[in-house]
Design a protein around this nucleic acid. Structure first.
Lengths: 256, 256
DNA sequence: TGTCATTTTTCACAATGTGGAAGGAAAAAA
DNA sequence: TTTTTTCCTTCCACATTGTGAAAAATGACA
């Protein structure tokens, strides 16, 4: 074998799981085409960039075209992204707000030096839609983009829960009751206290990962509809009461 | 084998090409998750819908999660679409206008009964971004969504070329000179004549597929920037000069 | 505590995916 | 024009990769 992408000489060695080579390769092909989507890419260039033989690349690209993920121009022989990929991506519209708040998050991260999160509600969950890290040496990365937590767990997550109408909030908390048990400091009493805090002062402060503190507040659109929440996380020692208030004020002014 | 998705008993039988089973399966898994993206889906439901065993489905879903295409909630065991899929879909932004003009195209298709196309420029190509078929028994489907033609070939395509500034137009026509040769009725003289027609009367009429005629005109945004073109295709016998003008007027009023 | 419904891991087997080689097709050079 | 080069596509023997039944693990519910 000329190329050995995932460095696997025998099954299961190397660490990566086995049995999915071709799927990984297909995704790599799609990524290369995405990188050259504007002008299009030829087969041999794709093959070169993913490190496969032209024949294997051709077979993979042919299925992707057949499935509408890529499109192929018979005259120019160039591959572009297909309508199928766009439609699939459009199904993932939970991430759309990301584009709107990117700049705002970056601004907050720059001014605080801490990690900033954009959180949205998704059913009974809080979904992390975006994350920007600051330039402070210690960053809180316990929550990745695309990850979910029970609605209520985490600063942004809790801010959303607290600002929901009472009946919805009750239903969600009842549904998540068992899930809260996995997090220390999320007893019904703790939750009630934090929700009250949010309603009184307009932001919430809490801890999910030990030794860290998050400060969060909700984001609404011009009409006052709830969109999601923005939160900033740092280590406990750098998050005294005064700084918490400053950060809450900073978030609010950044999101207008 | 319990299930036989692409009906393939021995290699290469059945018609579909061999050697890509797992990629097709992975795409099927993504599609099922997309269908249940709002609420999330469990493994056994995915397995049931794509017709695979839980173990195979699990392996496929695990790679997709690892690659960020899907996301998986460890607590609820539900799968959702991942940020990776959204980002890939965002790379295919050439299809974005589609969402804006969908309704307009459908309206035109209903009123004319013919096939309506939304065409955009993409480099030296015209890209078919959307297509809506009418209710007339004969429909012109020679151009599929995602397909490309040299800019200038086709009614919408030609309308775009004709409305570009002179120097750009020259450069594109020079680049495409050889490609035009594949289409009858696309000599330099023919092209010049059709471009002149567009500039004089605001729409263009031409033939790519024999026995069919397309009528096309450009779409601009509020500021007058060129977005693309809309065209209507029907069979020659139903496209006399009078109807061509009617259709051109109809398109123009529909797109405002 | 035990039962039931899931998800996850394991493993022997062969079907699927592989890439070298050869055939085409089209562009570039002579 | 013909030759050379480059790139795309098809073919096929081989073994790596993907498969699914079964077993193990997890968790919900009573």
């Amino acid at each position: 074998m000329l190329v050995n992408l995932s460095a696997k000489t025998t099954r299961e060695s190397g660490g990566k799981q086995a049995g999915v080579q071709s799927i990984r390769r297909a995704l790599a092909v799609i990524q290369v085409v995405a990188d050259h989507n504007r002008s299009g890419v030829g087969l041999s260039k794709i093959a070169g960039e993913v490190g496969l033989t032209p024949s294997t690349t051709h077979r993979i690209a042919a299925v992707l075209v057949d499935e509408g993920i890529l499109s192929h121009n018979g005259a120019t022989k160039l591959y572009h992204l297909g309508i199928g990929l766009y439609l699939l991506g459009s199904s993932a519209r939970q991430y759309q707000v990301r584009d709107i708040y990117r700049d705002t998050l970056e601004k907050i991260a720059e001014q605080t030096g801490d990690t900033v999160f954009l959180i949205m509600q998704s059913g009974y969950d809080a979904l992390c839609v975006d994350r920007v890290v600051g330039n402070t040496p210690i960053q809180i990365l316990s929550l990745n983009i695309g990850e979910r937590r029970p609605l209520g767990v985490g600063a942004g997550s809790l801010a959303i829960l607290a600002s929901l109408p009472g009946d919805q909030r009750e239903r969600i908390m009842r549904h998540n009751r068992r899930r809260y048990a996995a997090y220390p400091g999320y007893s019904p009493d703790d939750l009630a206290r934090m929700i009250k805090m949010y309603r009184e002062q307009g932001f919430v402060v809490n801890t999910v990962t030990p030794y860290t503190i998050g400060v969060g507040t909700c984001v609404h659109d011009e009409e006052g509809t709830l969109i999601g929440a923005v939160s900033v996380s740092g280590i406990v020692s750098q998050m005294d009461r005064k700084r918490q208030k400053q950060i809450a004020a900073l978030i609010k002014s950044a999101i207008q």
